[in-house]
Computed example of a mutant assay.
Amino acid sequence: MSGSKSSDPAAAEAPRHAAPADEPLGLVVHSLPSPGDVVVRQRATGRIKMLLVLAVCAAPVIASYFTFYVVRPTGTAYGTLVSPLAMPALEGRTLAGAPQALRGLAGQWLLVAVDSGACAAACEKRLFMQRQLREMTGRERDRIDKLWLVVDDAPVTPALRQALEATPGMNILRLPREAVAAWLKPAPGQALEDHLYIVDPHGQWMMRQPVDADPAKVKRDIERLLRASAGWDQPGRQALIGAAAAAADPAMGPASRP
């Protein structure tokens, strides 16, 4: 038609279908980690794994300490729990006169009796209960020692001495009464000699049993303490002493140990 602007539809659609211009392929290259960075990451990972392993291993120990020193079942204990009081640095003497440091007896649970060397009937009864309590714990008895603190110069009868020295885990030590009384405390109105005292493997006095205690109830207290400390306390001090003695003198029996 004259005067009208003509258009070519094919020409109008051409730009839409034109092939895109070729573009260069872009590549992004990441730098490789340096050997030093790899070593640092490996060390950090190794430390984390090591800390996790230590945490798992330490959990039972931490739990037992928490149970023993924090929870402390005062409502169910037969004896009286006391704030742990460390062994003093005292030097005593065995019945044979040899010097012996009190702290050298740490490392085991200790059932402690205190009395005169004359040891009247009540004293003998307490020493017998010591022996029975240790044996009543069965296979746990190697974690327990007995200690008789003789607080005067009175001689021990030969028969009693022989009987005590022949029993496993028995220790007899002479110490001044006033020095022992500064560490172990009787109940109000009672004498130092009236009780059986329990000392933990760290050398801390932590429980006092009643006067004329019931052995079955004392045994339950001891069993609770042994269970609570099972994660960190292991038998061995007497075993090590016996092994060392046997190595030095194979003919040396348990009764010959100091």
Score class of each variant (00 low, 15 high):
F66C: 09
P84I: 01
P35I: 07
T76Q: 05
L90S: 03
G36N: 12
P33W: 10
A89C: 07
W109H: 03
K49D: 07
S64T: 11
F68W: 04
K49V: 10
R41D: 14
G79A: 07
V40Y: 08
V82D: 01
A63W: 07
P84T: 03
G75W: 05
A58K: 12
M50C: 06
T45R: 15
P35Y: 11
R93T: 14
P88N: 07
P99M: 08
D37V: 14
S83L: 13
V40K: 15
F66W: 13
L51C: 11
V56S: 12
A96V: 08
S116I: 02
D115Y: 00
L81E: 02
A106H: 03
Y69L: 15
A63M: 08
W109N: 01
V112C: 04
A101L: 10
K49T: 09
L54T: 09
A89F: 10
S116G: 11
V38K: 11
Q42F: 10
V70T: 10
P33R: 09
L90W: 02
V71W: 08
A101H: 09
Q42C: 13
T45I: 05
R43S: 08
A77V: 08
A101C: 07
L81S: 03
I62V: 15
L85P: 01
A101E: 10
Y78F: 13
A98E: 12
G104W: 00
G46F: 05
T94D: 03
P35F: 08
A63C: 11
R93A: 11
P88W: 06
V61Q: 03
A77F: 14
A44C: 10
Y69H: 15
P35A: 13
K49Y: 07
L85C: 10
G104T: 03
I62A: 14
T45F: 07
R41Q: 15
L95A: 10
P84A: 03
L51F: 12
A44T: 13
L52R: 15
T67F: 03
A77K: 01
V38Q: 11
T67A: 11
M50K: 14
L111Y: 01
A86K: 10
G107K: 00
T76I: 05
T76W: 05
A86P: 11
S116W: 05
A101G: 08
A77E: 06
T94L: 09
R47C: 05
L52W: 13
G36S: 15
G36C: 11
F66Q: 05
L110C: 04
G46K: 09
S116Y: 05
A58V: 06
F68S: 01
F68L: 07
T67N: 10
A63P: 00
R41T: 11
R103M: 04
G107D: 01
T94S: 14
G46W: 08
L102T: 01
G107I: 00
R47H: 09
A86Y: 04
T94H: 04
R41I: 05
L85A: 13
C57F: 13
T67K: 03
L105K: 02
T74K: 13
T76V: 06
